[in-house]
Design a protein around this nucleic acid. Structure first.
Ligand code: MN
Ligand code: MN
Ligand code: ZN
Ligand code: ZN
Lengths: 141, 141
DNA sequence: CTCCTCAATGATACAAAGTATCAATGGTAT
DNA sequence: ATACCATTGATACTTTGTATCATTGAGGAG
């Protein structure tokens, strides 16, 4: 059992959701997917280990993980949403408008970060999108 | 003719794309949509002024505007991508994981920005996503 | 301005992605 | 061990996005 997997399962349980075998299989497959996966990609992956898990359950589990702030869907040039892990508290991308390529970087952002990234990856920036995730005033407890 | 609309049309023309009546209608409708619209939402809006414009053309025009860095699709709780304007160079959101509500803010980010936003909107942050858009080494000329 | 050319369009048909429903099941509290 | 009810998975469906292709019109050449 991966420690990152366990951490996510803890969040699920702490929030009063049941620890089912389907959820265990889905979260394990998700953490073991290095890249960003779509819901149907993930469903295929899950079924390699746990053939009984239905497609709907994968969709519902991903929705749940969104609500818990563990994953976030993004668009990556195809019709389907791709899910990225937010469990570590942040996630950073350089995204090409043309080929939809994604460059990952780990540093937390600072004022001068953008210029630095432009130099490091020879990336020609036209804009940026920042998303901060969490719970709003009304939803927090 | 809105000046923001004109600026976008200029980018289209400067990049060698034709200035068609369909594109004019779509871009005008897009700029005049305050909120984030889906492709089909936009198609409906466009047809109120230019009934001949087809759904496919709206999808294709949005793809083009993505490539030009003018818009960016984001996930907003429904199955369809919502398009946000990137023409001003940046776009900032606070997004609620639960209700999918979006709070807009204009300031460019800095190191202390996150804490400030948390206080200002009483928003309980669990993570953040930063996307920088542009062209990568290979695609830039 | 007129004529050509090919980028762009829109109709159509299709595939993929996401949602609704509900009877059956299994996690968890007691 | 039992019972309750959150969760599941099968099915059917809607919505969203894509492929194709004959037709059109924007814009450059003359
Ligand atoms: Mn990533
Ligand atoms: Mn916005
Ligand atoms: Zn690229
Ligand atoms: Zn909320």
């Amino acid at each position: 059992m991966d420690s990152e997997t366990k951490k996510i399962l803890d969040v699920v349980v702490e929030n009063g959701y049941r620890l089912t075998s389907a959820r265990l299989a889905i979260i394990t497959a998700l953490v073991n997917s290095a890249e960003h996966v779509t819901a149907d990609d993930l469903a295929d992956k899950v079924r390699q280990q746990a053939p009984h898990v239905g497609r709907m359950t994968v969709y519902r589990t991903l929705d749940l993980l969104c609500e818990l702030g563990i994953v976030r869907p993004i668009y990556q040039g195809t019709g389907a949403a791709h899910y990225i892990l937010m469990a570590k508290g942040s996630h950073h991308h350089l995204i090409c408008n043309r080929c939809h390529g994604v460059i990952e970087f780990e540093e937390c952002f600072a004022a001068m970060l953008i210029e630095e990234m432009a130099k490091r990856f020879d990336f020609h920036i036209s804009s940026h999108l920042l998303e901060i995730h969490g719970l709003c005033e009304n939803c927090y407890e």
